[in-house]
Computed example of a mutant assay.
Amino acid sequence: MKNKTNNLLSRAFALLLPLLLLAGAVLAQAPAVATDQPEMADALRASGKIYVVVLVIVIILSGLLLYLVRLDRKVSRLEREIEGR
């Protein structure tokens, strides 16, 4: 059971790591044009709402990850039942 959990976590990590690296590369790009008005992230940070945005994103991604883990467990259980017949 522990081996299956480790395998599942390694698969989830392998799927999420490229996405995180890609997002980091995209977010690291400097804006091409400087404006007099603050960007949305600066405005959200100044008002303290950026933490709410980050929290919502983390909750959504955590929910998706938990859903995928549960779905993988159900599919694995169904595969074992089919093999047992």
Rank of each mutant, 00 (worst) to 15 (best):
L66S: 10
L68K: 00
K49C: 06
V53W: 02
Y67P: 00
R80H: 07
I50D: 08
V33S: 06
S76F: 07
T35G: 04
E83N: 07
V33T: 04
I50G: 01
G48F: 12
D42Y: 15
N7W: 09
I57Y: 03
V53C: 03
R85Q: 07
M1L: 13
I59V: 14
A43G: 14
I82T: 05
L27S: 06
V69C: 09
E81L: 14
G84V: 05
L20N: 06
T5F: 14
L61K: 15
L9H: 08
A43W: 13
S10D: 13
R80P: 00
I82E: 10
R77K: 11
T35C: 02
E39M: 09
L71Y: 10
E83R: 12
R70I: 06
L68D: 03
L16V: 03
I57T: 07
R85Y: 11
L17W: 03
A25R: 01
F13Y: 12
P18E: 03
P31N: 10
E83V: 09
V58Q: 03
L55A: 13
L55G: 12
R77M: 07
L20S: 04
A41C: 14
A25L: 05
N7K: 11
G24P: 03
A41E: 13
G84F: 04
I60S: 04
V53Y: 02
S76M: 06
V26Q: 00
N3Q: 13
E39T: 11
R70P: 04
A28C: 01
E79L: 09
L66P: 04
D36T: 04
A30S: 07
K49L: 14
L27K: 02
L64Y: 13
I60D: 07
L64I: 15
G63M: 13
N6H: 10
V69E: 01
G63Y: 12
R80E: 12
I82N: 08
Y67I: 11
V26T: 00
G84D: 11
L8Y: 01
T35S: 06
